[in-house]
Amino acid sequence: MSNILSSILTTSFAASIIRIMVPILFAALAASITEKAGVVNIGLEGTMSLCALIAVTCAWKSGSTFVGVLGAMVLGVLLSLMIGFFAFKFKTDIILCGIAVNTLGEGGAVLLLYLLTGSKGDTQTVMGAWNLPRVTIPVLSKIPVIGEIFFTNQSVLTYVAFLCVLLVWILLYKTPLGIRIRAVGENDHAADSVGVGVYKIKYISLILCGLLCGMAGAYMSMSYMTMFSKGMIAGRGFIALAAQAMGRGEPVGVMLSSLLFGFAQALANYVKGTNLPARLVEALPYVVTILGITIYAISTFNKARKIRARQEKKEQKKAAA
């Protein structure tokens, strides 16, 4: 036990949490934007998978990881728009649309992989390894501990992810688009009656979601790993949904819940080297997810009660005085 503790308390462990949480953070932010607009997009998993593949492919074709990220973002947008098209135009249940995209992400990615490389496993042999530039921020990296964790040798997308937390917050609360997104999510009739195109806003939220998912995918195949391999998303899209629910769709809340999942996964990875049952430990992040959303649900469930209890206390105090 003690050596687990000592390995957890290292900066490299903390850095690995960051590494793991980044794709979840991207996807959870993506889910937050759609959720605020009243769009339930559960196709994150499949979108990330296809984007991860496209990222490497575009990078390989162009020789630039930047183009890879761009390609992934474009595909992310296209897939999200597809969900929107079926859900809004054809009135397919949006959850089913999400499931469809996930199926596409699983089978379609392999199909595409095969068409591109002739292999059904990974892109390594044909396309080689691709890694986004790693950046160490000059001054900030000198800060003890924190500098080493956050600002040393992190993928560019890691910085982008944390920047996105701020950007999404500004978007939602300080811009006209944000007000409209929230209005559409809360009362779409109200938005409609003043000429805010409800579907337009929902599509825009899906586009933003696609952009973020694209970056999540690109991070997976060009930072987390250096290639695309079958099944590499491994439920991160679903975990992101849970992170969104736990963070109430608020950017900061979402960041904290992504951090929690990052921690659980990093812990599982570290423990794997010990004599604890390996496969059981791998289930840890998923268990944490269930616990997390349950605790969140209980807290909102009890909130109303607590408010009332507080009032009663106030009244009692008044009465006593």
Partner: peptide, 16 residues
């Protein structure tokens, strides 16, 4: 994996 694609399409249009 072609099957996945076919089922996705059927799925989407059937539920539409």
């Amino acid at each position: 994996e072609m099957m996945d694609l076919i089922s996705v399409v059927i799925f989407l249009f059937f539920a539409a």
